[in-house]
Every structure is written in C-alpha cells, then in structure tokens.
C-alpha cells in the first residue's frame, strides 16, 4: 500500500510593507516587497497569497498587482463590519515599513484560454480579476468587464481600470446611480467561445450561477470571497486522501486538486469540466469533512456531506484526511 509522505507547510516569504493606500472607502491596498530584496516567484492571474497576521490568523487575499513587475505584490483588503480580526487587523494595525509574512502565490482561480471573456466583479471581488484583464489584453483576446459596487467611492481601482482599458471594455456600475448589475441583460444572451469569470459576494455569484445554467456547461469560473470573515477561512494545508476501494493514500498538495492528485496516483475518476460545474466527478465521502467549492451541489447536499466534487472541493479546515469511495 503506497503512502506518500505529507510535505506540509507551504513556503513562506518575509516581506516589508512598502505602502498602505486607500483606493476606496473601507479598502486598504498593501504593496509588499521581499525583505531579502529578491524578486517574488512568478505567479498566474487569479492567484492569492496567505497573509500571516500577528494575531495568529491566516487570511487569503487575491493579488491585484501587475505580473510584469515581480519586485512587488499588491493586495486589496475590504474592512468587513463583522470582522473578527482579519480585515480589521490589516486596516488598524498594519503600517508601511512593518514586516509581514506571506505564503508564495497559489492559484485556485486559474484563467483558462478562450477566444472571449466576460468578467463580472462585485465590490472587492475585483482584485483577482485585475491581473486577468492584464493577461487577456496582452493576449489580444476580446473581453468586457462589468464591475458593480454600492457607490463609486467604495469601488477600488475603478478609475484606474477605466483609464487603462477605456469605458468600452470596463463598465463600472455603481448601485447608487444605475442600480445593481443587470444580470439578465449581461447573461441573458449566451455567447459562443466565451468564458465567464466572476468574483464577488455569495448572493451575486448564486444569481450568476443560475443565469449561466443557460450557457454551455463549464463556462463559469467563480471565486467566492468570504465576506463575513468568521472562522478559519479556507483550508490552506495539504491533506491526505485515502481511496477506499484500493486502500491507497495520496497527499493532495496545496497547488493541486484532489482529482489531479488521485489521477497522478493512477486512480480513475470520471470528470468533464474540471471546474466544479458539471457534476460528473461527484464522489462519495466515506469519512472526513469536505470544503465544498463547486457550483453543482445544492446547499442541502453540501450540508449533508455525503458527496463532493473532487475537481475543485477540498478537505475542510481541521480535516487532515478524507476517505473517498475511489
């Protein structure tokens, strides 16, 4: 019975806070440089870093700087009203010149190549989209961004994006002026060879998922940000998966999906979209608790915890071993 040894603890990088800016109401933007003066490792659009806060919390924030300059990284942090210490600590305690420990960039929201793109951002959900825009613009792809928020003064980077790409491509929809994003208008007419990337609060993503049921399977890619800032956030540790049919145990590293890890170990899993959408890779959970990241299961299914989509979902925080019927 092959057992791969867990290679835990993702590499951390010590940084110095170069600047703290406030690009919008309740949003702090941190520019980070490496303490050793080196460059950051190259990263993909959609990536995030773990930020190790002094109060012991670990939080994930999307990178919103340019991938062309690896001498600095930028994150945008929204102060959430019911924060239990994550975003409040970033806003209140962190100052320019202080040090901050982060993880190397990781990507749970990869940009898949396509001929056309539709980007949808709600509020601070704009952050992972920013490097994506840079990437698709450089590749000469056709794209449009709809960025919604309560009012212009709460919408970070809105002006910067308009100035860089123009208002033909960047549609800023402030609720106090134009109302909410009109998803019927935006998504009511599916387009061929167009992928939809959306990041924002749960309610907005739920509505987008509903509209995208009328699109080809697999077009929608989402990242949900945890608005309430409670609990430990997503599991950032590697974990083990035991395949109950063969007794094999594999380690799922932070940069790979369960599907990839078990396929590498030689197990067969039926899969199709590999994006948490089509439901083909649904797998029964024998024991352990999953953190569901798919758009295929209902909330009731997710709560019941009997099955999971192994292409995107992972072990829950605190669960170091999942046993799956594979």
């Amino acid at each position: 019975m092959p057992v791969t040894a867990p290679s835990f603890a993702p590499a951390t990088i010590d940084t110095v806070i170069e600047a703290v800016e406030h690009p919008a109401q309740s949003v702090a933007s941190l520019v980070l440089r490496r303490s050793d003066g080196q460059q950051f490792p190259a990263w993909e659009a959609g990536s995030h870093i773990d930020v190790h806060l002094e109060n012991g919390l670990i939080r994930q924030y999307s990178l919103c700087s340019s991938r062309q300059s690896l001498s600095e990284l930028r994150i945008g942090v929204l102060r959430t009203p019911d924060s239990r210490g994550g975003s409040a600590h970033v806003h209140d305690a962190l100052r320019a010149g202080e040090t901050l420990r982060i993880s190397a960039p990781r990507n749970n929201f990869p940009l898949v190549d396509s001929r056309k793109y539709l980007f949808l951002a709600g509020g601070i959900g704009i952050t992972p989209i920013i490097p994506m825009l840079e990437a698709v613009e450089a590749a000469g792809r056709q794209w449009v961004l709809y960025y919604g928020g309560r009012s212009r003064d709460t919408m970070a980077f809105a002006r910067e994006l308009e100035a860089t790409y123009g208002t033909e491509k960047v549609k800023i929809i402030a609720e106090d002026v134009e109302g909410r994003l009109n998803l019927q208008e935006i998504l009511g007419m599916p387009r061929a060879h167009m992928l939809v990337y959306a990041c924002g609060p749960g309610g907005m993503l739920g509505a987008i998922e509903d509209f995208c049921m009328g699109w080809p399977p697999g077009v929608l890619h989402t990242e949900r940000f945890v608005a309430n800032d409670l609990g430990a956030g997503g599991n950032t540790e590697p974990f083990e998966v035991e395949l109950s049919l063969t007794g094999t145990t594999v380690t799922v590293d932070t940069h790979q999906s369960i599907l990839e890890a078990v396929e590498q170990a030689g197990a067969r899993v039926l899969s199709s979209c590999r994006a948490g959408l089509c439901g083909t890779c649904e797998t029964r959970i024998v024991s352990g608790e999953a953190e569901h990241r798919d758009a295929a299961l209902t909330e009731a299914d997710k709560d019941a915890g009997e099955v999971m989509m192994v292409c995107v979902s992972r072990a829950a925080a605190g669960c170091s071993r999942l046993v799956l019927e594979l």
């Binding site: 509903d210 049921m213 009328g214 299914d301 099955v307």
Partner: peptide
C-alpha cells in the same frame, strides 16, 4: 436550458 438544468442536476 436554465429551467431544465435547475431540475436535472447531480442532486
């Protein structure tokens, strides 16, 4: 398509 996908899904 939306109506049908809402009815026929993994759950």
């Amino acid at each position: 398509r939306r109506a049908l996908t809402g009815v026929i899904n993994p759950g």
